[in-house]
Design a protein around this nucleic acid. Structure first.
Lengths: 149, 149
DNA sequence: AGATAGCCGACTGATTGACTCAAGTATTAA
DNA sequence: TTAATACTTGAGTCAATCAGTCGGCTATCT
């Protein structure tokens, strides 16, 4: 039940872009340095996310990537699906895979459990937006500062 | 967010063993045929599950594998963890990995989300037992028969 | 024009996934 | 006691995926 580094890196990059929303395009290199990610690899992921409609980009000097939509409208589910494919834990409960159905459906109760798992996971990732992530970080940071004073 | 074929095969094998609980040891070959699984591969998985304390076995003629505990006491979570490792979607929220913690915890809200996902998944798999699976199958089968009559 | 920065495709090396195989040991029935 | 059965153990294989890297191209701004 792992998410890949793609999912990990992509969500961290978007977390970063969301925190710097309204600052115009951010170059890959800046994101890579702040989040400690391999730049050339991140490049691929951001391009994928652009094709998925999550990001937009601007080339040349002062160019970079930026969110195609406000943070409130981008969910983690969109990001994960873009880079990692379906959320479903197993093919036979994937929404994108309706035609090919398991030969043993009638004698298998596991399928129902995997469907529950899929729903539980998407209930979380499809309802958590980048704005939520930003809010949590700000809450954390505030708390940390309070403690330090 | 996939479960591997190991998790898939192992749970199907245990579903089968649970349905045939009280029938004594069942040979690998019988399970493999009923569930349409590669026998030599299943062999490994069942051995792993034995080492994990989920299964017991008997060698020789009339030998085979059987549940080490009644179906009511075996959860899918135990099975999945035995063959696939931790449920956690990412290392930094794995219970088995407490010492090695993420360098960016204070500036990362994603970790909390992955922890939510982990909890949601384990809430399901750690509370679904093989007995539950059997009950569901029997309910399904009954329903199917009713329709056919 | 030149620097910046995204775009695109190809390539690679290591790991993991999904098995297979051979040989060994315990158990039982004939 | 021997033969058949069936789990046990460790090793080997083959392909796919992961996790990147690299070179060169194109667009944009100063």
């Amino acid at each position: 039940m792992r998410i890949s580094t793609k999912g990990d890196y992509a969500t961290r990059a978007l977390q970063d872009l969301a925190l710097h929303y309204d600052e115009g395009p951010i170059p890959i290199e800046a994101i890579a340095q702040r989040q400690v990610l391999p730049a050339r690899y991140l490049e691929q992921l951001l391009l994928t996310l652009k094709r998925a409609g999550v990001l937009a980009s601007k080339r040349g000097v002062n160019g970079g990537y930026y969110l195609a939509k406000p943070p409130r409208e981008v969910t983690l589910g969109q990001v994960l699906r873009a880079v990692d494919g379906p959320i479903a834990p197993i093919f036979c409960v994937s929404e994108e895979n309706l035609r090919e159905h398991c030969s043993q459906e009638t004698t298998c109760a596991l399928r129902d459990v995997w469907a529950e798992v899929r729903d539980a996971v998407s209930a979380i990732v499809d309802h958590t937006t980048l704005a939520d992530i930003c809010d949590r970080i700000r809450a954390k940071t505030k708390q940390r500062i309070t403690y330090q004073i």
